[in-house]
């Protein structure tokens, strides 16, 4: 199991990494099994984005954003926290282990933390084993299936 590299969808807010070195690592040197999806703010993340990733077969989802009260858009991460953490319990309900969803709220001085968090999360996913993919063939669209 240990050599299995779980597919991770990594939603990153545009502003949460202060050190240029970290941002460079995320932008250029991310391992192949991790996919970076940049959004302007965690508040931009529609729960459907996460659902899409999960349906497509992502075994884990990481959402990294700024520390509450240090949001680039004043209160975007607060809205995200309300919306997405509520959503994570829904994910649990439909059979997707809540432990496969991780929120990382980064402070300006957390240099290098994102690398540690991602490694740790990967480790955790390996422990959990491969996910029973929620069967889906089509991306979801709000208001019904996308044709």
């Amino acid at each position: 199991m240990t050599d299995h590299k779980p597919k991770i969808a990594f939603f990153q807010c545009h502003w949460c990494l202060y050190a240029p070195e970290d941002q460079e690592w995320v932008d250029r040197r991310l391992p192949d099994n991790i996919r970076l999806i940049k959004v302007p703010c965690t508040g931009r993340i529609d729960p459907l984005f996460v659902l899409n990733a999960v349906q497509g077969g992502a075994e884990g989802v990481v959402i990294s954003g700024c520390l509450p009260e240090k949001c680039h858009y004043k209160e975007g991460n607060l809205a995200a926290r309300r919306q997405l953490q509520e959503f994570s319990s829904f994910m649990d309900y439909i059979g997707y282990d809540e432990a496969r969803l991780r929120f990382v709220w980064l402070d300006l001085q957390d240099r290098g933390r994102i690398q540690r968090e991602l490694a740790d999360f990967e480790n955790q996913l390996q422990q959990l084993g491969s996910a029973e993919a929620l069967a889906a063939r089509q991306p979801l669209e709000e208001g019904g299936a996308h044709e």
Binding site: Y18, A19, E21, L108, Q109, R111, G112
Partner: peptide, 15 residues
Amino acid sequence: AMITEDSETHNLFIH
């Protein structure tokens, strides 16, 4: 505005 630290080497980065 900020000093950040590499947690392994304890080197400091001045922004």
